[in-house]
Amino acid sequence: MKISVINGPNLNLLGTREPEIYGYDTLADISGKCEKIGKAAGIDVVFMQSNHEGQLVTWIQEAINKVDAIIINAAAYTHTSVAIHDALRAYTGFTLELHISNPHLREPFRHISYVSPAVDSVVAGLGVKGYEYAVTLLSTIVLAPTKSPD
C-alpha cells in the first residue's frame, strides 16, 4: 500500500513562512513523522512538494492505478486550479484534501476550493498535526476497511 502526500506552492517554506499561521515544523519534519506512522502500518508514505501547478498535475496522474490514496494540500492552487480538479477526478483511489489552517476562516478568496468537489474528504484547520492525523487515519482505517470504526 502506498500514500502520496502532494504539497503545493510555498509549502517548502513551512517553518519560516508566517509561523503564527502555519507553525514552526518544516515539511521535512512533518514528512519524517508521517513516514514513520506509515511504516508502522506497513504503508509507504511518500511526500512531494512543488511550486508548479503542472508538476502537481503530473504527480496526480502518475498515482493513477499505482497509489492507494492521495493526501493533497494544493495550497494557493486550491483556489484557482481547474487542472488539479480534473486530475483528481481522473484518479480513482481515496483522496483527502488537507489544509493546515482553515481557509474558510481567512480571506474570502480562499473560501472557494476547486479541490473539494473532486475529493472524498476534507480536513482543515488542525495545524501541521493534520498531516499526521490524516496519514494515521488512512493507514489504519480507510485503507484497511475490514477493521472496526475505531
Binding site: 482553515n102 476562516l105 473560501h111 476534507v122 482543515a124 484547520g125 488542525l126 480507510v142
Partner: peptide, 23 residues
C-alpha cells in the same frame, strides 16, 4: 458548508463518516 467566522478557533472535517468524529 463550514462556518466563516474568522475569529473562531475552528477546524473542519468532512467526508470521513464516523471517522470524522474520532479524528
Amino acid at each position: 458548508g463550514p462556518v466563516k467566522v474568522p475569529q473562531a478557533e475552528a477546524g473542519f472535517i468532512c467526508g470521513l463518516g464516523v471517522h470524522g468524529y474520532t479524528l
